[in-house]
Amino acid sequence: MLEGKFESASLMKRLVEAIKDSVKLCNFNCSQTKGITLQAIDDSRVLLISLKLDPGCFEGFRCDKNLVLGLDLESLSKVLKQGNNEDYLTLIAEDAPDNLLVVFEDPKKDRISEFSLKLMDIDSDVLSIEDMDHDCSITLPSSDFAKVARDMRTLSESLQILVTKDSVKFMASGPIGTGSVIIKAHTDLKDGKESIKIDLNKSVNVTFGAKYLNDIVKASTLAETVTIKLTNKIPALFEFKLQGGYLRYYLAPKFDE
């Protein structure tokens, strides 16, 4: 039996909103030691999502037997919208489940709502992602990155990212003109989360589809900072750290012409 209780429904609500536009059907893998993990690739095979929610992400977590819960994220999103952000959220499944039970309790305990969601058999392709060495790592406020990704998309379908020792340059060029945003490394002593950190082994010049970057920045509601690991000509990693877990996106670059 699986029983995973979140202190608030808000984490799961934000997670599903962050990924449901990229992938529709997902297998949630549940185990006592690893908690809940998920890997899903978008239909175009350009963007991969990897989610880890350690047992420590939950107020209570019990999983007697490894389970795979095949879920339609559109349906899960509909159910999660029934609960309030501050509600306790508990996910419950039997050992060979046909359904996932989603229970919201309002913190004052005067209201309990229960929903049963049908599970699906999902035949998903799982890719082996090994730890990669990257040419550079950038950590910046996730809202700053979201703004750049959203703004630059209005200029072009592609966003070029150039990283040098102490700055990151975002460039877009399209039918109406061109634009660039340069951000420099700095340390904010008052609020460390506002700092911009650049670790560089080698300068990087890489281009991504703006559409995918706009999907990725939907996760900026989950973490105040995002870490972007880039290497020339190989997929990039965008990581949003969660309390006791992470949401990672791997994005394939565009070809050099």
Binding site: R45, V46, D125, V126, L127, S128, S158, G209
Partner: peptide, 13 residues
């Protein structure tokens, strides 16, 4: 600019 696929970099399990 053509888009690369993740499957050119990562093996299927």
């Amino acid at each position: 600019m053509p888009q690369q696929l993740l499957t050119s970099f990562f093996r299927s399990q």
